[in-house]
Simulated scan of single mutants.
Amino acid sequence: MATLAASLLALVVPARADWPDRPVRIVVPYGPGGGVDSFARPIAQRLTEQTGQSFVIDNRAGAGGTIGVLNAARAAPDGYTLLAGGVHQPMAEALYPQRGYRIDTDFIPIGITAVVPNVLVVNPSAGLTDLPTLLRRAREKPGELTYCSSGNGTSQHIIAEIFLRDTGLKIVHVPYRSTAPAMNDLVAGVCPMMFDGMGTSASQLHGGRLRALALTSARRSPLFPEIPTMKEAGGPEMDAGTWYALWAPAGTPPAIVERLRAEVRRAVAAPETARLWAQQGAEPGNVPDDRLDAFMREETARWTGEVKALGLRAE
């Protein structure tokens, strides 16, 4: 029986030396225009150029990203389906207990592609000129201010709730279906504020359409040195940034995993990638290959604990 099973597995996931010899699908479990999508597409383009095969983005949004992740988890582990995601995936572990997969056991991490600080951004017309002004208004009129996010259970939502817990403020959450419509309404002044990844806010900050009040990280960004940390701005001490990554389904042949990791390292190190990352306020990921599994376990444990402590549930 064991021999038969091994033979069948070999038929399903052959470790071909000529990988890739056909297009590779990268599942993005969120809509176009969000942080995961914005950081996955340049990597897909670089991998296409490096390997001579197409790496195609497949956006499969829904249920806080879990629909797309489950689709990737069920794919054949043959190197032709990858998952693009980030810190959002460990966060989903406690929010969606019936999601049908575990990010730390059903996937193999390929690489951390980018790291960005999260930033509290406001529409300039909201009159929230700095963090003390926001804190004062929220305390004087609890529940009057709102903040938008890309949806319930997303990193924007969870990081905002950590801020509210640590300040004792009451600010109403307005969830959207993805980052793009939330950002559109923020820029239009429909909602006054958002805790966003720098990747999607950077261009709005450069254009003066948004104002940054504070980073939710422990240190300032070398790419935006003028933006204070939350503690420096007069708020609670926070260390909640966003990282982005690629995974392959568990069972992907080691030779393909090794090749993927090398190609992703090369893509991240490319000058064109560095230029794009800098425009989005991002730095390249620097977790070495032999630390990737431990990093994912640690992040999953950390964010599972945070979500449970906040008492958040998927809606």
Rank of each mutant, 00 (worst) to 15 (best):
G151L: 01
N152P: 01
T154K: 08
T154P: 07
S155L: 05
Q156G: 15
I158T: 07
I159L: 11
E161L: 08
E161A: 07
E161T: 10
D166W: 04
K170E: 13
V174F: 05
V174A: 13
P175G: 08
A180L: 10
N184M: 14
D185K: 00
A188T: 08
A188I: 05
A188L: 15
P192M: 04
P192R: 10
M193Q: 03
F195N: 14
G197D: 13
T200V: 15
S201T: 12
S201W: 00
A202H: 09
Q204Y: 01
H206E: 14
A212V: 04
L213P: 02
S217A: 10
R219K: 02
R219W: 01
F224A: 02
I227F: 03
I227C: 05
G235R: 06
G235H: 06
P236T: 05
P236H: 10
M238N: 03
T242R: 10
W247Q: 08
A250C: 12
A250K: 13
T252L: 12
I256L: 08
L260Q: 05
R261L: 11
E263T: 10
A267M: 01
E272Q: 10
E272S: 12
T273I: 07
T273R: 14
Q279I: 00
Q279M: 09
A282V: 08
A282R: 11
E283P: 02
P284I: 04
P284M: 09
N286A: 14
D289F: 09
D289G: 09
D289I: 12
D289N: 11
